[in-house]
Design a protein around this nucleic acid. Sequence first.
DNA 1: TAAATATGTCGGATTTTCCCGACGCGTTCC
DNA 2: GGAACGCGTCGGGAAAATCCGACATATTTA
Lengths: 109, 109
Amino acid sequence: MTQRRTDGESAGTRDVFAALANPARRQVLMALREGPLTASALGAGLALSRPAVSEHLALLRAVGLVQAKKRGRERLYHLDPRPLTEVGAWLNVMLAYWTQRVRDLDPAL
Amino acid sequence: MTQRRTDGESAGTRDVFAALANPARRQVLMALREGPLTASALGAGLALSRPAVSEHLALLRAVGLVQAKKRGRERLYHLDPRPLTEVGAWLNVMLAYWTQRVRDLDPAL
DNA sequence: TAAATATGTCGGATTTTCCCGACGCGTTCC
DNA sequence: GGAACGCGTCGGGAAAATCCGACATATTTA
């Protein structure tokens, strides 16, 4: 058994968790909370080169966290929070046990 | 300017988000939900070499998600869900429907 | 005390991530 | 049409992550 990635995903894929692992990408998502923004507007607050921002956006698009709409010569990015439910669901399972424990200990909650 | 990480954290540090980015580590946390387990017991379900498991555990310990207690010649790992509140809080800001569960866990929020 | 067990750590190979400058393509403005 | 703008992608390099086999350390058992 020498292979590392048995098969399946085309090796370049990452999931929502991995997408959130990068601070710049989290910042992008935060910035998009209150409305769509262009790529350059997003890059403005990031201290990163434009290509870097573009690649972060590509990854976020790949996992479905953002979507882009062409508008004139710019591109409007808007948030799609649905993939975050996977993280929420995971956290929910992780914490369910503990929240239940807390409730057992203190029913006043 | 060739340096990438201007300074700060000792270069090997990662945050809770990064800790969750790895599927094996998420599996470990899931496995620890219902009670402490030894390192080898954790490795049993992971299809990884023992050193790999040990290093994942070291990282999880580094970000505070697990703690280890020596018991005889083995080491019992147990979950510490508190760092997950950071993820929960972040998700809470991003979404609207997540608060309560995290609050149960850490009323100090 | 010696062997066996449980786990951490080291050395090193491979892969992935992250970033940048340069270039290409479509759109708008003069 | 030609220059300027906005954005994606390519090529590539530095750093980090991931993994393993081998070795080190502590503890229990024979």
